[in-house]
């Protein structure tokens, strides 16, 4: 035995990326993975290739989580979303690296993306207890009634995340869905799924109840099709679907009249989002209450 040891660089530990379903990190039920590369073609990792069954499990998990999440107070949901921002801030460097690799950005640009993404969580965290006041209200009906319209989450929303903006774009479509009390099944960017899969780790450690967000990676068309046809999914955001796929999914979605948000051209994910992505997945419930008079009293002697 020699006393000399060969001085080598430390071998890094690879991460096994997994799906995120019902608060757990399973491998794909199919047992399949696919290669994910950076913008210059270097291998980054293998990502799980989610199957139809994974999609189904994710819907079951999202449905199970819906009652609790939609029934939570708006204040509580705001706290949870803010907690996501806090957790993300703490893992800023990790995400800067992942976004830089995934989207081929310089470190500085990737840092700007991550910062904007953190800020986006903060923005939506503040919306949870305001959107009801902004889009709901009392209606002055002509009669002895008190009539109030309130927005309510539509239910389980399938989100086909943007293909290009794998992190800021992803959060920009997921956060509004859950801010209002919906639960989400997210199909991550097909070619850049790693930031989404890492985000799941942040969600799992920031008080977001299991099942509120479920993240699937794999072939977008293969995963989105069963989601669009699923009778227990209430809505679908087609942000990351191309024209042909979007049409196909919209047709499938008609079977149970899902609310469909068609792909919207987004020039600049950094811009202030507006409330459209929240209202797209809100129902308006209008409740009529009888009022009537206090009573017809009157003594005159």
């Amino acid at each position: 035995m020699s006393d000399k040891t060969v001085k080598t660089e430390r071998l890094s530990v690879f991460k096994t990326y997994k799906l995120y379903i019902g608060g757990k990190f399973p491998r794909s039920e199919s047992g399949r993975v696919y290669e994910v590369s950076d913008s210059t073609g270097n291998w980054l990792a293998n990502a799980p290739q989610a199957s139809r069954k994974d999609a189904r499990d994710a819907v079951v998990a999202a449905r199970k989580a819906f009652g609790g999440w939609s029934g939570a107070t708006a204040y509580n949901r705001g706290q949870v979303l803010y907690r996501v921002a806090e957790m993300l801030e703490g893992r800023r460097e990790q995400f800067v690296n992942e976004v830089a690799a995934a989207e081929g950005l310089s470190k500085a640009k990737a840092a700007a993306v991550v910062d904007a993404t953190v800020d986006r969580w903060v923005w939506y965290a503040g919306w949870t207890d305001k959107i009801v006041q902004v889009v709901g209200g009392a209606n002055p009906v002509a009669g002895p009634f008190f009539n109030l319209s309130t927005p309510e989450p539509t239910g389980v929303v399938a989100v086909v995340a943007p293909q290009e903006s794998s992190f800021l774009g992803l959060v920009s479509v997921v956060a509004p869905v859950i801010a209002t009390g919906n639960t989400a099944v997210v199909v991550a960017s097909e070619k850049a799924p790693l930031p989404a899969l890492s985000l799941a780790e942040v969600l799992a450690t920031s008080d977001v109840p299991g099942g509120v967000v479920n993240v699937l990676s794999g072939r977008t068309a293969q995963i989105a099709a069963p989601l669009a046809a699923h009778q227990d999914v209430n809505a679908i955001d087609l942000a990351g679907a191309d024209e042909a796929l979007a049409k196909e999914l919209e047709i499938a979605a008609a079977d149970n009249l899902k609310r469909v948000l068609r792909p919207q051209p987004v020039d600049d994910w950094f811009a202030t989002p507006g409330i459209d992505r929240m209202t797209a997945f809100l129902e308006t419930k209008t409740v009529w209450h009888t009022t009537g008079a206090l009573g017809a009293a009157g003594s005159s002697y």
Partner: peptide, 9 residues
Amino acid sequence: PGVDAVGLE
């Protein structure tokens, strides 16, 4: 049973 004023009227 209670009476709902609006319905009665």
